[in-house]
C-alpha cells in the first residue's frame, strides 16, 4: 500500500476516509496488540483525520497513542 496522503483522503467521501485510514492503522496496531487491534483502531479512528495522517507518518507518536488507548480501553473494561 502506498502511503496515504491528504489529497488522496480529500478525494474520498468521509466514510471512505475513515475506512482508508483504518485499513492502514489496523496492521500497525495488530503488530503490537493482536487481541485488541480492532478495538484500538476503532478508538483511534475517533481522532480527526489530519492528526491520524500525522500519526501514520511518525511511528513513535503512533506507538505512544496506541499505548495510551490500550490503557484507556483496559480501564474501561475493568
Amino acid at each position: 500500500q502506498e502511503p496515504l496522503t491528504a489529497s488522496m483522503l480529500a478525494a474520498a467521501p468521509p466514510q471512505e476516509q475513515k475506512q482508508m485510514i483504518g485499513e492502514r492503522l489496523y496492521p500497525l496496531i495488530h503488530a503490537m496488540h493482536p487481541m485488541l487491534a480492532g478495538k484500538i483502531t476503532g478508538m483511534l479512528l475517533e481522532i480527526d483525520n489530519s492528526e491520524l495522517l500525522l500519526l501514520l507518518e511518525s511511528p513513535d507518536s503512533l506507538h505512544s497513542k496506541i499505548e495510551e488507548a490500550v490503557a484507556v480501553l483496559q480501564a474501561h473494561q475493568a
Binding site: P14, Q15, K18, Q19, G22, E23, L25, Y26, P27, G38, K39, I40, T41, G42, M43, L45, E46, L73, H76
Partner: peptide
C-alpha cells in the same frame, strides 16, 4: 461513553460502524 459496545471495533475489509456518530 460507558456503553458496552464502545469502542466500535474496526475489522479490515468491513465498513467501520463507528462512523458517522463520532
Amino acid at each position: 461513553s460507558s456503553s458496552v459496545n464502545w469502542p466500535p471495533e474496526f475489522r479490515p475489509g468491513e465498513p467501520w460502524k463507528g462512523y458517522p456518530n463520532i
